[in-house]
Amino acid sequence: MSGRILHIASNTFREAVRDRVLYNLIVFALLMCGAAILVGQISIDIERLVVVNLGLTAISIFGIVIAIFIGIGLVSKEIEKRTLYTVLSRPVRRWEFIAGKFFGLAGTLIVNTFFMAIGVFAALLYVSHHFQASDAGVLVALYFIILQFLIIVALALFFSSFSSPLLSAIFAFALFIIGTFAEDLRGFAALTHGAERWLATGAAYLVPNISALNVISQVAHGEPVAGQLILYNTGYALLYSAMVLFGAILIFEHRNLK
């Protein structure tokens, strides 16, 4: 069972690599080089701040774009090209297919993020000539960014399991945007009353809570991230992506693959 999930995951990874997804690393490398050199010349004392802010923001945006645009095609493209039929006619369970696809794309993003992270640390070393203790915060921010990716991949896959790629992209992107304001949404909900409050609170808790996973500005200012928050965020992101993934499995299990 786990073997088949692994094979599907590695095929998904290979597909992303061969479709030249990792070319974004070149753009990223150019961006980091340019930033490191320029910042060193024009600003004093905030080189580190700019490198961390720019680097982490770029990692996050690149990854989310990849997660959405590959994620939405994970299932629908396989149906369109009829490749899914040959896979599912074999002793492969539908849930194994979904799980394999998820791990494949998540793995792609983790590898991609790993290379980008090297770029950020290289740029940091270039501008400040040594690492500081507070640079550990950058690792935490990177970890949180990967947790964000897990949620987005799960959402894109979820929509892909029953909707067209275009609609899936719109839904996934909209949820990402709403998710970055999840805390404000819960604030809005707290201001309403009665039945509306229940509805609004329910909706506010169901959208992905992306904002808590974004600590870029905090670590750019060298502030530490509480260990408790790391723990809770990990738990939250894993449970939330699992929830979305199980939802995708539930829908996909019942789908007629016309």
Binding site: R186, N209, L229, G235, M243, I249, L250
Partner: peptide
Amino acid sequence: ATLLVITTMAGSILLLRLVD
């Protein structure tokens, strides 16, 4: 899958409160 959706949903809401 239905049971897991429900439990993970409850768990994620619980953790979200802790995060908050």
